[in-house]
Simulated assay, not measured.
Amino acid sequence: MLRGLSPSSAPLQLLLMGLALGAIGIVQFFRLQHRRRVMEDMPTARIRSAAQGYVELVGQALAPDLPLFSPITRTPCCWYRYKIERRDGSDGDKWTTEEQGASTAQFWLDDETGRCIIDPEGAEVRARTRSTWTGAAAQLIPGSRGEVMLAGDNDHRYTEHLILPGQTLYALGWFASLSPLQASKHEEVRERIAAWKADPQQRRAFDTNGDGELDMAEFEQLRQQAAATVEAERRERAVLPQTHVLKKPNDRRVFLLTTEPHDDLTRTLRWQAWGWLLAGVLGLGYGGAGLLMRF
């Protein structure tokens, strides 16, 4: 029974809430069970030999090329999520979110066979490094050599979730390898010609008679120079390795990044799934019994 009420005496709204809880519980059970099975059944790929498509990677998180710092404690990190809440109400047990956000900066995963860019936008992230505190806390002073200051007050609660450089990262998402010569030579030449024609300085360089216009001979010279420049640049790029990226799939499959140990997370998902199933069965039983007694 919910809130000490028998189903026959419960208000209709409470019975409908029970049915809604039951439906949500059943859906959550199947969703979490599916996620757990995907994690348990998916073989771990290696970056150097990974197939294009949906893969599981495990490696070491490495910082972005440009330094990234968490907004509250200014901790160097690969990824962050934060929330700042303000105490609301005289009783002091209610909190209102003032500010929150998560980083979308790309960072690296290294599994010793290669490196892969992790694009965290749209990912479900479970970070093992997380902290919540109320009141003043030691925060790194930006641009200093490790100096800290005390900031914050007792009317605010702060939360940070971090992926730190060097932590083991489990990643489940869409893997794609990008060739340095992905665009065709024809497209690159056409874009270079358009760019040079739109640039007054480049136009003057090929306007040999100085009349402000490019005649057929002058345009042909520009085209040949553009083609030669593009060809030289493509030869330089041809020796570069492919760039690997892991990102959110285009379909509804899960995109998961976590620093929690694989076995711990699957165990947590199992218990969460069964917890939701229990709540769902109780909600359906309570709401269904109450409606049957009323009608």
Score class of each variant (00 low, 15 high):
136 A>F: 02
150 L>I: 03
130 R>K: 15
140 L>S: 04
170 Y>F: 15
164 L>Y: 02
153 D>H: 14
136 A>E: 10
124 E>M: 12
121 E>H: 14
165 P>A: 06
151 A>I: 04
144 S>A: 09
163 I>F: 01
132 T>S: 07
115 R>H: 12
159 T>W: 00
114 G>D: 06
159 T>D: 12
159 T>Y: 06
142 P>G: 07
160 E>F: 01
134 T>G: 04
143 G>C: 11
133 W>H: 07
126 R>I: 14
161 H>Q: 15
143 G>W: 05
117 I>H: 05
162 L>F: 06
113 T>Y: 13
133 W>I: 07
140 L>W: 12
136 A>G: 06
135 G>N: 07
151 A>M: 09
113 T>D: 15
118 I>Q: 02
125 V>C: 05
131 S>K: 06
124 E>D: 09
117 I>R: 07
149 M>A: 15
155 D>A: 01
136 A>Y: 01
119 D>R: 14
153 D>F: 12
144 S>E: 11
118 I>K: 01
159 T>K: 03
169 L>T: 00
161 H>Y: 12
120 P>A: 05
132 T>Q: 10
126 R>E: 13
120 P>S: 03
109 L>A: 02
138 A>L: 15
126 R>L: 14
131 S>H: 08
135 G>Y: 08
157 R>I: 00
147 E>G: 07
126 R>Q: 11
113 T>A: 06
154 N>I: 04
108 W>R: 13
161 H>P: 07
147 E>R: 13
138 A>G: 11
146 G>M: 14
133 W>D: 12
115 R>W: 05
124 E>G: 02
168 T>E: 14
127 A>L: 09
129 T>P: 02
166 G>T: 05
127 A>R: 02
123 A>Y: 04
135 G>S: 11
111 D>T: 03
143 G>K: 03
167 Q>H: 12
135 G>T: 08
124 E>C: 05
152 G>Y: 04
115 R>F: 02
130 R>S: 07
117 I>N: 05
111 D>W: 09
109 L>C: 03
112 E>Q: 14
108 W>G: 00
127 A>S: 03
146 G>P: 15
139 Q>E: 08
154 N>A: 11
155 D>M: 03
156 H>K: 13
137 A>I: 01
133 W>V: 04
139 Q>P: 00
162 L>P: 13
115 R>V: 08
150 L>K: 04
156 H>L: 03
120 P>I: 09
147 E>A: 14
137 A>F: 11
148 V>N: 02
166 G>N: 05
115 R>C: 07
150 L>P: 00
120 P>Q: 03
168 T>Y: 10
132 T>M: 06
157 R>C: 01
125 V>W: 06
158 Y>V: 03
145 R>V: 10
152 G>N: 09
120 P>D: 01
132 T>D: 11
118 I>H: 03
155 D>C: 00
166 G>I: 06
125 V>M: 02
157 R>Y: 02
112 E>N: 07
110 D>C: 11
129 T>L: 04
154 N>H: 12
163 I>M: 01
167 Q>P: 15
151 A>N: 08
128 R>K: 15
115 R>M: 11
140 L>D: 09
142 P>N: 10
126 R>W: 12
148 V>G: 00
134 T>I: 15
131 S>V: 08
143 G>M: 08
161 H>M: 12
160 E>A: 00
116 C>I: 10
124 E>K: 14
131 S>P: 00
127 A>Q: 06
109 L>N: 01
159 T>L: 01
124 E>V: 10
126 R>D: 11
